[in-house]
Design a protein around this nucleic acid. Structure first.
Lengths: 214, 214, 214, 214
DNA sequence: CATGAATGAGCCTTCATTCAT
DNA sequence: GATGAATGAAGGCTCATTCAT
């Protein structure tokens, strides 16, 4: 037993739950919920199987925790980013998309959307939580930007609710793609280029021609 | 017991495999591969558990069959649709998107993209097959339409490969959404409206201003 | 459909059961009863799985038939051979051992002793049948030869019942060995040499020294 | 619940594997490999089905362990017994046969020869192991005794390799017999009497007459 | 707190048996 | 008679969960 070194047990104890959910997230995203064994999660987190049950009541509870601690903090950050934004509506849209990529797309949390796509029908309660706390809040950010642009005449006037989903889809799809087919086929493309193309089409699509019509 | 009816043994024999893959597809899409029990598939197809093994060597072989017989026929139809198209490049794009919705989005095969997202990392070989026989061929259709529009000056000139993915994403996402979160939350929106919005933004986004410059 | 050739169905029909038991015997000896699939037997006999049930009620009934038609004819032949024997007691013993090798050891029926060793505890009734109709009758032949030799002073006087088993053991073991370890290790030895050695030791062992004592 | 007793977890852990192979050996010998259910083994060992898989990867691995831990220790003991033997060659033979009966014939390990006869063709690798580590070493012990006797003139000169097998056969057969037919028919004979008869015939058979010829 | 041995319900797979053709 | 598609009970194996240490 080493006399010094090694973080004291106290610190570990507090950090444990998030180490466990981090390991669980990785494996759930990789293999899916049902195909992931608790033992594998324990091994990846460097603990024993039984330890998982000190922090979570069941495999399903662990899954819920993974989702619940996943994207909410990122959303809060995005919300404050949007609140303090000063530029044009399109610049806000751009900031939202790029911010989302930085805060989610490039982190381990990017796996959560794929996970929810794969598992929501098996866990309706979790899906409900995710919808209310992530999807709705995320859509609201985009809705506000779009509404502002339309009200000011910067954007053509369209149905906002429908517009949001069309705009978000390429961003979501990029993430999902990188966690599914692209991952095992190694056909990665450059995300920044892809997002730039999306914004390029979007600018033209939303702004319309010089006269602002139709 | 009816005097007529009762499918003769012979006909069943030939029809069985596709009845089984149909039942399997539904359940794999609903629950995922690992969480689907062969017994459930058998019950849904109206046969016994053992019968599955008369037609497929294993659960995994059944999965492969589900994917392989899934979208290839629809793609062939889309290819012939594209080959015989006469209108503008944008009209071809529109026809591709709407055709895809009609041939895939509204059929049971719409579940396959969701299934591949969820399972491709567990079945790299199947992912490879899907990529080569569905993804690549689908992208080629859109690539041809885009290239034609750019060459003729109808569309602004952009990198085709990147452009394809951005354009396809909303269509794919619509399908995936309806098989995942939307399905269990009953927050369905009208697909036609959504696709119309996508095309609306796309027209403006691709065509650009009156002078044809970017 | 050929107009001529092929044995007429009538003949097949009579020959069928023994073709089936022949195939079954081979596979039971090779793999054991439980590990042999009826389908394999059917294939080896060149019929379909269902056909087996036209001749035998169950897998167990087939097993019983295999044993019952196995060694009884060979024993009858050995009995008539012994009955007509004219030489010394030792020559009779020698004729029995050599005859047994020719009638059983070199035929497919040599598998039956191995089969009974492996399966008798799973099929006590069959074991009973085998004991009464094969073992007992076989021992009786040896018993008669021994008794004759002891009565005439040709052999030393010993307990016949015990003596029989010691004498038979090497012959049995030779057969069993060739159907088990020797078969998969290819360490076959020459059976004739082995049997000659057995008889050589036996002659000396039974005859004793010149004075006929002890 | 008793205050004392109750084997500590630690001790069980170490003792488990041999408890499991002991139970497995009994059942494999009784019913054969394929006809033995893992559940029965577990019940006989007083554990649950799953526990077997903590110690053995599969049913086949359990089988291999049963064979591998079976007769090797007994052989080692027999070898040291032979090494320290001082009497005549025949006395050594006698000691080997009687020792083998005491160390194997009367223990649970006596089932292994029957098991190998029944299963070697299904498990060629195990047969190979058994042949090299048990059969070969056992034959070497007898070979040495025979060779010594022939070199000293105590025995008649014969081909040693063939002679061994003839001599061992009755001992092996006795064991096999008691685990197969004799077991279910209750026709047990006295083993000691049988072995004595074998040795009696053998002495006379090997020694020959007073003049040492032929 | 942490461990990992033990459990047993559950699932994939096999195969003896049946029966419509 | 002969076939082989269909059945469903049974068994090997896995893994979420528990609990004595």
């Amino acid at each position: 037993m080493p006399v010094s070194a090694a973080p004291p047990r106290k610190r570990r104890k507090e950090a444990r739950p998030s180490e466990l959910t981090a390991a669980a997230l990785e494996l759930f995203v990789e293999k899916g919920f049902a195909a992931t064994r608790l033992e594998d999660i324990a091994v990846r987190a460097g603990v024993s199987k039984g330890t998982l049950y000190l922090y979570f009541d069941s495999k399903e509870a662990l899954f819920k925790a993974v989702i619940q601690e996943g994207l909410v903090p990122a959303l809060a950050e995005a919300e404050s980013l949007a609140a303090g934004h000063a530029g044009s509506a399109f610049e806000l849209l751009q900031a939202l998309i790029e911010g989302w990529w930085r805060l989610v797309g490039e982190t381990r949390y990017s796996g959560i959307p794929k996970l929810m796509i794969a598992e929501s029908r098996n866990f309706p309660e979790v899906a409900q939580f995710y919808y209310e706390n992530v999807v709705q809040r995320g859509r609201a950010l985009f809705a506000a930007a779009l509404q502002r642009g339309m009200d000011s005449g910067e954007f053509r006037r369209r149905d906002v609710a429908t517009c949001i989903d069309v705009i978000i889809a390429p961003v979501l799809m990029l993430i999902v793609w990188r966690h599914s087919l692209a991952h095992c086929l190694l056909v990665q493309q450059e995300p920044r280029t892809y997002l730039a193309m999306h914004l390029d089409l979007l600018r033209q699509g939303l702004l319309g021609d010089a006269t602002g019509s139709p």
